[in-house]
Simulated assay, not measured.
Amino acid sequence: MAAVAAVAVLALAGCGSGDSTASKTPGPLASTPPTSGSEPNSPSASTPTSSPRPGADGPGAPAADDPCETNLAAPEISRAVATLPRDPRSNQGWNPEPLAGNYNECAQLSVVIVKANTNADNPNTRALLFHRGKFIPTGVPDTYGFNGLDSAATTGDTVALEYAGSVPELDSVVRFRWNGSGVELIGNTGG
Protein backbone atom coordinates (compact mmCIF):
# COMPACT_ATOMS: atom_id res chain seq x y z
CA MET A 1 0.00 0.00 0.00
CA ALA A 2 2.87 2.37 0.82
CA ALA A 3 4.46 1.61 -2.58
CA VAL A 4 1.24 2.53 -4.38
CA ALA A 5 1.05 5.82 -2.48
CA ALA A 6 4.70 6.59 -3.33
CA VAL A 7 4.10 5.95 -7.04
CA ALA A 8 1.03 8.23 -6.96
CA VAL A 9 3.04 11.03 -5.32
CA LEU A 10 5.83 10.68 -7.90
CA ALA A 11 3.32 10.71 -10.76
CA LEU A 12 1.76 13.93 -9.46
CA ALA A 13 5.18 15.53 -8.98
CA GLY A 14 6.09 14.75 -12.62
CA CYS A 15 3.18 16.88 -13.89
CA GLY A 16 4.40 20.24 -12.63
CA SER A 17 3.68 23.38 -14.58
CA GLY A 18 7.38 23.93 -15.26
CA ASP A 19 7.56 21.25 -17.96
CA SER A 20 4.29 21.77 -19.82
CA THR A 21 2.98 24.02 -22.53
CA ALA A 22 -0.42 23.95 -20.85
CA SER A 23 0.44 27.26 -19.21
CA LYS A 24 0.61 28.76 -22.72
CA THR A 25 -2.68 27.20 -23.77
CA PRO A 26 -5.77 29.13 -22.70
CA GLY A 27 -8.71 27.17 -21.40
CA PRO A 28 -9.75 24.89 -18.59
CA LEU A 29 -6.43 23.04 -18.50
CA ALA A 30 -4.52 25.93 -16.96
CA SER A 31 -3.84 25.37 -13.29
CA THR A 32 -5.15 27.78 -10.68
CA PRO A 33 -3.38 28.79 -7.49
CA PRO A 34 -4.57 27.11 -4.30
CA THR A 35 -7.05 28.92 -2.13
CA SER A 36 -6.78 29.24 1.62
CA GLY A 37 -9.73 26.85 2.05
CA SER A 38 -8.11 24.02 0.02
CA GLU A 39 -7.75 20.67 1.62
CA PRO A 40 -4.13 19.64 2.22
CA ASN A 41 -4.42 16.45 0.14
CA SER A 42 -6.24 17.95 -2.85
CA PRO A 43 -4.25 18.30 -6.10
CA SER A 44 -4.78 22.07 -6.15
CA ALA A 45 -3.43 22.48 -2.63
CA SER A 46 0.15 22.09 -3.74
CA THR A 47 2.07 23.42 -6.69
CA PRO A 48 4.80 20.86 -7.29
CA THR A 49 7.73 21.84 -9.43
CA SER A 50 10.12 19.54 -11.13
CA SER A 51 12.92 19.64 -13.60
CA PRO A 52 12.10 18.43 -17.09
CA ARG A 53 11.97 14.67 -17.48
CA PRO A 54 14.74 13.03 -19.51
CA GLY A 55 13.88 13.12 -23.20
CA ALA A 56 11.22 15.81 -22.74
CA ASP A 57 13.43 18.77 -23.58
CA GLY A 58 13.45 18.72 -27.36
CA PRO A 59 10.92 19.05 -30.12
CA GLY A 60 9.36 15.75 -30.95
CA ALA A 61 10.24 14.22 -27.61
CA PRO A 62 7.68 11.68 -26.44
CA ALA A 63 4.97 13.28 -24.34
CA ALA A 64 5.14 10.49 -21.74
CA ASP A 65 2.54 11.46 -19.14
CA ASP A 66 1.78 15.06 -20.13
CA PRO A 67 -0.51 15.40 -23.16
CA CYS A 68 0.16 19.13 -23.22
CA GLU A 69 3.77 18.84 -24.34
CA THR A 70 4.84 19.09 -27.95
CA ASN A 71 4.85 15.54 -29.29
CA LEU A 72 5.94 15.15 -32.91
CA ALA A 73 5.74 11.36 -32.51
CA ALA A 74 2.02 11.33 -31.64
CA PRO A 75 0.09 8.62 -33.49
CA GLU A 76 -2.52 11.19 -34.58
CA ILE A 77 0.11 12.71 -36.90
CA SER A 78 0.74 9.52 -38.88
CA ARG A 79 -3.02 8.83 -38.99
CA ALA A 80 -3.60 12.30 -40.46
CA VAL A 81 -0.76 11.92 -42.99
CA ALA A 82 -2.25 8.59 -44.15
CA THR A 83 -5.50 10.37 -45.11
CA LEU A 84 -3.83 12.98 -47.34
CA PRO A 85 -4.12 12.80 -51.13
CA ARG A 86 -0.82 12.30 -52.93
CA ASP A 87 1.54 15.21 -53.49
CA PRO A 88 0.35 16.91 -56.70
CA ARG A 89 3.87 17.53 -58.01
CA SER A 90 5.56 14.15 -57.44
CA ASN A 91 2.44 11.96 -57.20
CA GLN A 92 4.00 10.42 -54.08
CA GLY A 93 2.55 10.03 -50.60
CA TRP A 94 3.70 12.10 -47.64
CA ASN A 95 6.39 11.18 -45.12
CA PRO A 96 4.75 10.95 -41.67
CA GLU A 97 7.90 12.15 -39.88
CA PRO A 98 7.47 15.91 -39.36
CA LEU A 99 10.13 18.37 -40.50
CA ALA A 100 8.89 20.85 -37.90
CA GLY A 101 5.89 21.54 -35.73
CA ASN A 102 4.36 21.95 -32.32
CA TYR A 103 1.67 19.23 -32.24
CA ASN A 104 -0.03 19.42 -28.86
CA GLU A 105 -3.34 17.78 -28.04
CA CYS A 106 -4.25 20.58 -25.61
CA ALA A 107 -3.69 23.56 -27.93
CA GLN A 108 -6.53 25.25 -29.77
CA LEU A 109 -4.32 25.14 -32.87
CA SER A 110 -1.08 23.26 -33.50
CA VAL A 111 0.73 22.19 -36.65
CA VAL A 112 3.20 19.76 -38.18
CA ILE A 113 5.02 20.18 -41.48
CA VAL A 114 5.63 17.09 -43.60
CA LYS A 115 7.34 16.57 -46.95
CA ALA A 116 6.51 14.47 -49.97
CA ASN A 117 7.99 10.99 -49.75
CA THR A 118 10.35 11.48 -52.68
CA ASN A 119 14.08 11.67 -53.32
CA ALA A 120 13.74 14.96 -55.22
CA ASP A 121 16.09 17.77 -54.25
CA ASN A 122 13.28 20.09 -53.16
CA PRO A 123 10.24 17.98 -52.25
CA ASN A 124 6.90 19.67 -51.69
CA THR A 125 6.01 20.39 -48.08
CA ARG A 126 2.63 20.69 -46.48
CA ALA A 127 1.42 21.90 -43.08
CA LEU A 128 -1.23 19.87 -41.25
CA LEU A 129 -3.28 21.81 -38.71
CA PHE A 130 -4.79 20.28 -35.57
CA HIS A 131 -7.42 21.53 -33.13
CA ARG A 132 -7.05 20.02 -29.64
CA GLY A 133 -5.04 17.18 -31.18
CA LYS A 134 -7.54 16.35 -33.93
CA PHE A 135 -6.57 16.82 -37.58
CA ILE A 136 -8.52 19.52 -39.44
CA PRO A 137 -8.91 17.96 -42.91
CA THR A 138 -11.12 20.58 -44.56
CA GLY A 139 -11.84 24.29 -44.41
CA VAL A 140 -8.16 25.23 -44.04
CA PRO A 141 -6.40 27.79 -46.28
CA ASP A 142 -3.68 26.42 -48.59
CA THR A 143 -0.76 25.16 -46.51
CA TYR A 144 1.69 23.93 -49.17
CA GLY A 145 5.29 25.15 -49.28
CA PHE A 146 5.95 26.01 -45.66
CA ASN A 147 9.16 24.62 -44.19
CA GLY A 148 9.36 25.97 -40.64
CA LEU A 149 7.53 27.32 -37.63
CA ASP A 150 8.12 30.78 -36.16
CA SER A 151 7.88 29.82 -32.50
CA ALA A 152 8.09 33.45 -31.31
CA ALA A 153 4.85 34.29 -33.14
CA THR A 154 3.09 31.00 -32.32
CA THR A 155 0.66 30.81 -29.38
CA GLY A 156 -1.94 28.35 -28.11
CA ASP A 157 -4.48 29.44 -30.76
CA THR A 158 -2.17 30.78 -33.50
CA VAL A 159 0.51 29.15 -35.63
CA ALA A 160 3.04 31.13 -37.64
CA LEU A 161 4.35 29.14 -40.60
CA GLU A 162 7.59 30.11 -42.30
CA TYR A 163 8.68 29.84 -45.88
CA ALA A 164 12.42 30.23 -46.30
CA GLY A 165 13.94 29.65 -49.71
CA SER A 166 17.10 30.30 -51.65
CA VAL A 167 15.97 33.87 -52.38
CA PRO A 168 15.80 35.74 -49.04
CA GLU A 169 13.51 38.43 -50.50
CA LEU A 170 10.79 35.78 -50.87
CA ASP A 171 10.98 34.52 -47.27
CA SER A 172 7.71 35.01 -45.42
CA VAL A 173 5.69 34.14 -42.33
CA VAL A 174 1.97 33.39 -42.57
CA ARG A 175 -0.15 33.25 -39.42
CA PHE A 176 -3.26 31.12 -38.96
CA ARG A 177 -5.61 31.37 -35.97
CA TRP A 178 -8.34 29.20 -34.47
CA ASN A 179 -11.34 31.57 -34.32
CA GLY A 180 -13.56 29.37 -32.16
CA SER A 181 -15.08 27.38 -34.99
CA GLY A 182 -12.39 27.09 -37.65
CA VAL A 183 -9.02 28.23 -38.99
CA GLU A 184 -8.55 31.65 -40.53
CA LEU A 185 -5.61 33.38 -42.17
CA ILE A 186 -4.73 36.43 -40.06
CA GLY A 187 -1.43 37.72 -41.33
CA ASN A 188 1.31 37.50 -43.92
CA THR A 189 4.69 39.17 -43.61
CA GLY A 190 7.34 39.19 -46.34
CA GLY A 191 11.09 39.13 -46.03
Rank of each mutant, 00 (worst) to 15 (best):
G156Y: 11
R126K: 02
P137V: 00
K134A: 04
F135C: 03
P141F: 13
P137Q: 00
T143V: 07
A153D: 15
R126Y: 07
H131S: 02
Y144R: 10
F146P: 07
N147Y: 10
D157W: 05
A152F: 10
G139P: 06
F135I: 05
P141C: 01
I136N: 10
I136C: 08
L149C: 07
P141H: 12
A152Y: 15
I136V: 13
I136Y: 06
K134D: 14
V140I: 15
G133K: 13
G156H: 02
A153C: 12
T138E: 13
A152M: 12
V140A: 04
D157F: 01
P141W: 12
K134C: 01
G148K: 04
P137F: 12
F135S: 11
A127G: 01
G139T: 01
R126G: 07
D142E: 09
D150H: 09
G145Q: 04
G133A: 02
A153K: 10
L128C: 03
R132M: 07
L129V: 11
V140F: 14
R132V: 00
R126L: 14
A153G: 15
L149T: 13
G156D: 12
V140S: 11
L149G: 14
P137M: 13
T138Q: 15
L149W: 10
A153R: 05
A127Q: 11
I136W: 04
T125Q: 04
G133W: 00
T154K: 11
G148D: 07
D142S: 02
S151K: 10
Y144F: 15
T143M: 00
I136R: 15
T154S: 03
L149H: 04
T138G: 08
T125P: 03
G139D: 09
H131A: 01
N147V: 13
T154P: 00
F146W: 08
A152C: 08
A127N: 06
V140M: 10
D142P: 01
D157N: 14
T154M: 12
D157R: 07
D142G: 07
K134L: 09
L128Y: 04
L129C: 08
T138P: 01
T155H: 09
G148P: 07
N147W: 03
S151Q: 08
F130I: 06
G156E: 02
S151C: 01
G156N: 12
G148C: 07
V140D: 10
S151M: 05
L149I: 03
Y144M: 14
P137Y: 05
L128V: 02
L129Q: 10
T155Q: 02
T138I: 08
D150W: 12
I136D: 00
N147P: 08
D157P: 05
